[in-house]
Each structure stands twice: as C-alpha cells, then as structure tokens.
Amino acid sequence: MFEKYIIVEKETKNIFTDGKPTGFQVGARVPYYRGLGISMIEDIKLSVDGNTVSPDKILVELHGNKYTLAAMQTEADDRWEFGEVGILKVQQPGGLAPGNHKITLAFTLRISYMPVIAVREDSKVLSV
C-alpha cells in the first residue's frame, strides 16, 4: 500500500553547508492510509547502494520538529500526517558521490488492529 510513493525524488539530494556537501537527505512519506502518531512508526530502514545507514545517524524532520529514531518511539503527541513529506537527514562528510544511487527505504508500522506488524518498502535509483 503506497509503497511506490515512500521515497520522494525531489527531496532526495545532498546537503550543503558553506558550499560543501556535509551529508544527504531523503524525502519520505508513510505508506499507510491515515496519519500516524509517530511512536507507531516502529522502525525506518534506509540503505544506499545496498549499505545500511546506521539508525543513529538518521534525523527525521517533520513540520519543523526533529527526531532521532529512538526519540520517535516515545513521542506521545506529534503525528506524521497522511501524505506528509518528511525529511530524513544523514550526516556524512562529502555527501553522496555525484551520479546514480539505489536508495531503499522501509517503514515498519505498528497498527493496532492489524494482526501483524506491517513492513513496507520502496526502492528507487536516483541521481544526486
């Protein structure tokens, strides 16, 4: 459900500080049919060219708020709205090398009425 819309191409790019690439970001939407309290996003797995990005390196920006994946687990009020594009930021000196990269992003969602945890994944080859 909504898998192919998870990675938002135009928000996926290198991050520059003082003209130098200091990391990269990936635009992301939650693959579900309603907004979700962010504590129910049990996990976000990001990989670039097959290499998993360490979870503690990911910072999630949502309508001006910033969360580590760990902090998302205990957030009681804030929500990732339906269709909202959040930004995953990864600090990485040099950013991603120019050219094509295979980005894979998976969301693990804990939806109370569903008998099993939902894992939904998107993979796109994008040029940065």
Binding site: R34, G37, M40, E42, Q73, A76, R110, I111, S112, Y113
Partner: peptide
C-alpha cells in the same frame, strides 16, 4: 475512529 492501543512499543 481508530483505537491505537499499541501506541507504544
């Protein structure tokens, strides 16, 4: 409505 009784892990 939804009832998110598994709100926290």
């Amino acid at each position: 409505m939804f009832l998110d009784f598994k709100k926290f892990k």
